[in-house]
Amino acid sequence: MIQSVERAIHILEAIAHAGGAAHLNEIAGITELRSTTAHNILKTLQSLGYVRRRGGDTRYHLGDRIQNLARVAGDDDRLRRDLRALLEAMAEESGETVFLAVPSGDEVYFLDAIESRETLKAGSQSGERLPMAGSAIGLLFLAHIPRIRQRMLETHADRISLNLELEIEAIAQRGYALDQENWLPGLSCVAVPYAEAGEVRAGFGLAGPSFRLPLGRLEMLAGLMGDILDDRVPI
Rank of each mutant, 00 (worst) to 15 (best):
A16Q: 12
R65N: 14
H39N: 13
G205M: 08
V51R: 06
L83K: 05
N40R: 15
V98C: 03
L206Q: 01
I9Q: 13
R147M: 14
D227R: 14
D106V: 01
I148W: 00
L142Y: 00
E219A: 06
I9W: 13
N68Y: 02
M1S: 13
L69H: 11
E169I: 07
D77K: 09
R151P: 05
L218E: 01
M225A: 11
G203S: 00
L111N: 04
I171Q: 00
E199S: 09
L206N: 01
I148D: 00
A170D: 13
E167G: 04
L162T: 13
A38F: 03
L139F: 02
H17I: 08
G127C: 02
G175A: 04
V98D: 00
L48I: 05
D76S: 06
E26L: 11
P214Y: 04
E181H: 07
P214M: 02
L140W: 03
G186T: 05
D231K: 15
G138T: 12
G20P: 08
Y176H: 07
H156V: 07
S188H: 02
A38T: 08
E169G: 04
I168Y: 09
L42Q: 02
A197H: 09
A177S: 15
M90P: 00
P234M: 14
G138Q: 01
T97Q: 03
G56R: 11
L12E: 09
G95C: 08
A16Y: 10
L69Q: 12
E154C: 10
S210A: 10
L229C: 11
E13V: 14
R7Q: 15
Q46F: 02
D82M: 15
A172F: 07
D158K: 07
L224G: 01
N25L: 14
L83P: 07
F141Y: 07
S4D: 15
Y194P: 00
R52Q: 09
Y176F: 13
R80K: 10
I15E: 12
H144Y: 09
I171M: 09
N182P: 02
Q150I: 05
G205C: 07
V102L: 13
D76T: 02
T37S: 15
G20F: 05
E128M: 12
R84K: 14
A157P: 13
G138C: 02
E96N: 01
S126I: 06
T97I: 04
R80G: 11
G19W: 10
A195D: 12
L162M: 12
G74C: 14
L79F: 11
G105E: 03
